[in-house]
């Protein structure tokens, strides 16, 4: 099946004189309906990579194909109908004076007739559970609520792909959970392809595949289980250690043998239970 996003040999420099390129020979493909997490330390190029997919940044060389169309300067606007993006700062992407105005912004840009806008705005707000806040001003919303409105703004345009560019970094734990569960729900309902750039291990754990960036290069790829078994290297990749890994380290320090492979919390609980009490 043809991938919905395909990157081939992407190079990118913010300034031509830059010593090290922001992106160096990056290639990968994403199938429709996948949830891809892109992780990496600060400055690894993950955000830059995200911005090439919807043409906010144009690569110096290489090709990007979205939905079968190869991205160039002229069809960038068509591509943007297929790819919605939620940014890191909840305030700095909120254009409208009220919640419903902001959701309508993207629709207005596409020249959607007003009657249809009314339907789509209401629909999108219901999907993110912000419909009772339709006339609320942004200054009176929490970070998590603002991000959900941003998601509604994307959903109203009915794209195939949604990119979350560190969309949960500036939120408190509650806000983060709101946003992640909203994305999960919407992905299931509409079979969206999700690309999330993140530092949050709980967010990354939802992915089908994780891509690891380091200094502009794609250095690793795998399922969450495969990537999370990297142990202490995870910190360099910009993630925190999952708790079972931290516990394993603490147990090892105390002379207890622990299984090498990655264990989820549930499996760790099971292993401990059988090892400690049922011998």
């Amino acid at each position: 099946m043809q991938p919905i996003i395909e990157l081939k040999n992407i190079d990118f420099n913010y300034q031509p004189e830059d010593a090290s390129p922001a992106l160096k020979d990056v290639s990968f493909s994403i199938q429709q309906g996948e949830w891809i997490a892109i992780i990496g330390h600060n400055g690894s190029g993950k955000s830059t990579l995200a911005k090439t997919i919807n043409g906010l940044l144009l690569p110096a060389s290489g090709s990007i194909a979205v939905g079968g169309k190869e991205l160039n300067e002229t069809n960038v606007w068509d591509i943007r109908r297929m790819v919605g993006m939620v940014f890191q700062n909840p305030d700095n992407q909120f254009v409208g004076s009220t919640v419903e105005d902001d959701v309508a912004f993207g629709l207005e840009n596409q020249g959607i007739p007003r009657e249809e806008m009314l339907v789509r705005v209401k629909d999108a707000l219901e999907k993110v559970r912000m419909d009772s806040f339709a006339t609320r001003e942004p200054a009176r919303l929490s970070g998590g609520q603002k991000q959900r409105v941003a998601i509604a703004g994307v959903v109203a345009l009915r794209p195939d792909i949604i990119i979350l560019d560190e969309a949960t970094s500036m939120l408190d734990p509650e806000g983060r959970e709101e946003v992640i569960s909203t994305i999960k729900k919407i992905k299931e309902e509409s079979n969206l392809t999700v690309i999330s750039i993140t530092h949050d291990i709980d967010e990354a754990a939802n992915a089908n595949r994780i891509l690891v960036m380091k200094q502009g290069e794609l250095v690793g790829e795998g399922t969450p289980a495969e990537i999370f078994s990297a142990g202490t290297d995870l910190i360099q990749m910009g993630l925190d250690l999952p708790f079972p890994e931290k516990l394993k380290i603490a147990l090892k320090k105390r002379g207890i043998d622990v299984p090498k492979e990655y264990l989820t919390e549930e499996r760790m609980v099971d292993w401990l239970w059988t090892s400690v009490l049922n011998k």
Partner: peptide, 28 residues
């Protein structure tokens, strides 16, 4: 929260440990 899962399985703690190290000590 992890320790609570162990408690649900039947393990006993005097006090719920709050850090990985404290939990490891208890498990030891």
């Amino acid at each position: 929260s992890f320790a609570e899962k162990l408690v649900n399985k039947g393990m006993n703690f005097d006090h719920l440990p709050l850090t990985a190290d404290a939990l490891a000590d208890e498990l030891l």
